[in-house]
Design a protein around this nucleic acid. Structure first.
Length: 646
RNA sequence: GCCCACGUAGCUCAGUCGGUGGAGCACUUCCUUGGUAAGGAAGAGGUCACCGGUUCAAAUCCGGUCGUGGGCUCCA
């Protein structure tokens, strides 16, 4: 017997029955139309699959569900591959999975696809959809599959087959297009009601830059035109939040061809926001037992050799010469911190030592990866190195992760946590890697923070916990990170004197909270859509007069607010009030303070909040208190306390 | 670094078949003194990213360089 969720009774399971047959008995015709696959014990099957005897409960997978959408997109990728093969018979197909917001398929072809090609492919796909061809699943031996793909001259498929361990593989066929594929797929092509090809891009075969460059076509597909339109509208919305666009509009920062790519230039308002962020960080670090330090911008090459950077990180470094000496411009801040530790003997009583530096680093990032403020060549890290005894490691990691949580909550960020393990190019013993990886995961388990694992993604000197934030388009960017390092203490021969008078090696944690101020600022702009919370807003209030009569009064008001640390601007231009209000609104200034004759008479200001809400007239001191309260609000939740005043 | 697309005024964008470059906003001046998202008029503003080629003639066609965008790879 099989229990089908959503059906009133259990269904008799006859040998060789397919999912479709069982669902046919269990569900209404109307509901059945929405079903594209079924799920049994966390595995998803095609409707045409036969159910095993052990299947006791069956979940229909609806087209509108997350899983249904993935199947739809994967099938759309097949339909695209079919269309491409028809239009360009000499292409070779490779792989084509569904991805977060759509799908792609990589092709090997003698020339790149043009936007015009995409239109033709889309038209061909539409034909295939209207023919409503069934997807057929076939299970064959690897040998048979090899024969088929050899005949089709699909060499990439043969390569995949060679690497498979299984004896049997599944093939999917719709019309005359056949593909090696695990599935599952839609019952037929007609289910793909709404799709759009979005872009072409180069992509290396198997993501390896030494292998051939393939042509990747990206597309997206939805269960209905309405959903597709909603998605495209969301993309349009996201563009408005793009930090590069807002950076120009709000006059926060710029890039200049003359200065060079990846070199951000902070304008007064952007520089003020980051100054506040940095000021907050300095105070918060001091509060949490860190010590502020500062190292030089360039250090001798020999020191980079000693640390291992010269061997492992050289291609990302810039070098310069002083007299006959080669100096490396720092891409990381650790070196000087090591020297501070070494500058005197350390006792076990001194540990942990937490050295904090807002360190400006330079890294030679490949030209193709630069991206607004989110990837630049010069940036400032809120970097710290914690030197501690092995028995303190656990608590220190927990302290850092808690710090990250507090700060992310302050801004209201959602984040993803990942543990990255040993990469191919790395230094240190296997034992040290294992120990430090375990220390990281154990810390996350202690504070019950869910995490994923990224195999081989660690830094060359140790494993790490990464905390990633999303930008307006949902792309993930690494911000906070905690990295274990058992090798730097050895390379620098760091030690402390233990209780017994013997020498012991300290352990190092490299860690950042915001990560790079530049990147964090970029993500922050997108997170708030440019409307910074009052404590961070470069201009907190704009004061404006209605006519020239009140000009002297608004100058007085501005001076009064400024005296109490409020960041105010004055707008006394000969313009109508509506015009001045509109401008302040577009600049996303939290408070508009208006003075007309009534306000002058009563020594008050009329308060309009960002977004349009009008609070009416208040005394000047009440306005100051209101803004103070607004500045303090985000900190109350987390038990933090901070106010930037000048 | 690799693949594709793009580069016109401070910003957003027109510019046909190759024939001495346009609009809106912003800016300056003048008029207007107006109560919560754009009052009116006039003016100024460009080596069409840069270099080279084809042509009687190039923003426009071709090549190169630089930069930007979307990906790949890499990473905070």
């Amino acid at each position: 017997m099989v229990k089908v969720s959503g059906a009133p009774e259990e269904i008799q399971l006859s040998a060789g029955a397919t999912c479709r047959e069982i669902l046919f008995k269990a569900l209404s015709r109307k509901k059945l139309k929405e079903v594209v696959a079924c799920k049994c014990q966390e595995r998803i099957y095609d409707l045409t699959s036969e159910l095993g005897e052990d299947c006791s409960s069956l979940d229909p997978v609806l087209l509108s569900s997350h899983e249904g959408l993935k199947i739809l997109r994967h099938s759309a990728a097949h339909i695209m591959a079919e269309a491409v093969k028809k239009l360009f018979p000499s292409v070779k197909v490779t792989i084509g999975p569904d991805i977060e917001h759509g799908f792609y398929y990589d092709f090997d072809y003698e020339r790149p696809f043009t936007p015009q090609d995409l239109e033709k492919i889309e038209a061909r796909m539409a034909e295939s959809v209207s023919e409503n061809k069934p997807f057929e699943r076939m299970v064959v031996s690897v040998r048979e599959a090899q024969k088929i793909f050899l005949e089709l001259n699909e060499t990439f498929k043969l390569e995949i087959l060679d690497e498979l361990d299984e004896d049997q593989v599944s093939l999917y066929k719709h019309g005359d297009f056949i593909d090696l594929c695990r599935g599952p797929h839609l019952p037929s092509t007609g289910y793909v009601k709404a799709f759009k090809l979005t872009s072409v891009a180069g992509a290396y075969w198997r993501g390896d830059e030494k292998r051939p460059m393939l042509q990747r076509i990206y597309g997206t597909a939805f269960a209905s035109e309405k959903d597709l339109k909603k998605h495209l509208d969301r993309l349009e919305e996201a563009k408005k939040r793009d930090h590069r666009k807002l950076g120009v509009q709000l006059d926060l920062f710029s890039f200049s061809d003359e200065a060079g790519p990846g070199m951000p230039i902070f304008h007064p308002k952007g520089a003020l926001v980051r100054t506040i962020l940095e000021d907050f960080e300095r105070k918060e670090h001091l509060r949490r037992g860190y010590q502020i330090v500062q190292g030089p911008q360039i250090l001798r090459r020999e020191l980079w050799e000693k640390s291992g950077h010269y061997d492992n990180y050289r291609e990302h470094m810039y070098f310069t010469h002083i007299d006959d000496q080669v100096y490396g411009i720092k891409p990381m801040n650790c070196l000087a911190h090591m020297l501070i530790y070494k500058s005197r003997l350390r006792s076990y009583r001194d540990l942990p030592l937490r050295y904090f530096e807002l360190g400006r680093v330079h890294r030679h990032e490949k030209s193709g990866v630069l991206h607004g403020l989110l990837r630049v060549r010069e940036f400032t890290q809120d970097d710290a190195h914690i030197l501690c005894r092995p028995d303190q490691l656990q608590d220190e990691i927990i302290g850092v992760v808690r710090f990250v949580q507090d700060v992310m909550n302050l801004f209201g960020f959602e984040y993803v946590v990942e543990v990255s393990t040993r990469p191919e190019k790395s230094i240190g013993s296997g034992d040290a890697w294992e120990k430090s990886t375990a220390a990281l995961t154990r810390a996350l388990e202690v504070i019950k923070l869910p995490y994923g694992i990224c195999p081989g993604e660690g830094a060359f000197y140790g494993p790490k916990i990464d905390i990633k934030l999303k930008d307006a388009l949902g792309r993930r960017w690494q911000c906070a990170t905690v990295q274990c390092d058992f090798t730097l203490p050895e390379r620098f021969d760091l030690f402390y004197t233990g209780e017994d008078g013997q020498k012991y090696r300290p352990v190092i944690l490299h860690r950042v909270i915001l990560g790079a101020i530049e990147r964090f600022f970029g993500v922050l702009i997108e997170h708030f859509g440019g409307a910074f919370p009052t404590w961070l807003a470069p201009v907190q209030a704009r004061i404006m007069n209605i006519t020239g009569v009140q000009e002297e009064y608004v100058h007085y008001c501005a001076a009064t607010l400024r005296d109490q640390g409020i960041r105010v601007e004055l707008d006394v231009r000969n313009e109508k009030l509506g015009y001045k209000v509109r401008e302040a609104q577009m600049e996303k200034i939290p408070y508009v303070l208006v003075a007309g004759d009534q306000e002058v008479e009563k020594s008050g200001l009329n308060v309009r909040m960002r977004g349009g809400k009008n609070l009416g007239m208040m005394s000047i001191q009440d306005v100051v208190d209101l803004i103070y309260q607004d500045m303090d609000e985000p900190f109350k939740k987390g038990g933090l306390s901070y106010r930037y005043l000048y």
